[in-house]
Simulated assay, not measured.
Amino acid sequence: MAGMRNSDFDFLTGHWTSRQRRLVKALAGSDEWYEFDATLDCQVLLDGNGVFDVLRAPERDMEGLTLRLYNPDEGVWRIWWAAKTSGGQLDVPVVGRFVDGVGTFECDDTWEGTPIRVRYRWSEVDTPRPRWEQAFSTDGGQTWEVNWVATFSRS
């Protein structure tokens, strides 16, 4: 509702360290992962309806930013990601909401030429170690392959 403060992402405010795990090759039937450390600096803005963070993983030469905007009329978040390697482009936004403490956000996109469904999921947000994961589906969301998982800790 208009004028109401959105607190969905308040848990993420501040400075975090994280352990990141990514599949070496997504959608290839592989179970080979690599791991690295990253930091996350997050600000909650616009009465909770805007969230901005920067993820940095120097050892992987990786830097990316996330912009989350909440539409109170629709009751949904749109989440955009852009990496240093994105060439000035924001990814297609995932769209969704929190239900029972778990945030699920999805969109249609393309991965290396293959049409996919993308899902971000935030869980354990009421614990000291929130968890985020990204998964892809090539069958419209019937089955999912998780390809990126991050666990966060306050630094």
Rank of each mutant, 00 (worst) to 15 (best):
N6D: 12
N6C: 14
S7Q: 15
F9I: 07
D10V: 08
F11P: 02
T13F: 12
H15D: 14
T17F: 09
S18C: 10
Q20G: 06
Q20V: 12
A26T: 09
S30F: 01
D31W: 04
Y34S: 11
E35S: 05
T39C: 06
D41V: 14
Q43P: 09
G50M: 11
R56M: 12
P58A: 06
D61N: 15
D61W: 11
L65F: 12
L65D: 09
L67H: 14
Y70T: 04
P72L: 05
D73M: 13
E74G: 13
E74N: 12
G75T: 08
W77A: 05
R78I: 10
I79N: 10
A82N: 10
A82I: 12
A82K: 10
K84V: 12
G88W: 05
V94T: 11
F98T: 02
V99A: 10
G101K: 05
G103T: 01
D108N: 10
D108R: 11
T114L: 11
I116L: 03
I116N: 01
V118D: 00
E124A: 13
E124V: 02
D126W: 07
P128N: 08
P130C: 04
P130N: 04
S137N: 04
G140F: 02
G141S: 05
V146C: 01
V146H: 00
W148L: 06
W148A: 02
V149L: 03
S153T: 12
S153A: 14
R154H: 01
R154C: 01
S155G: 10
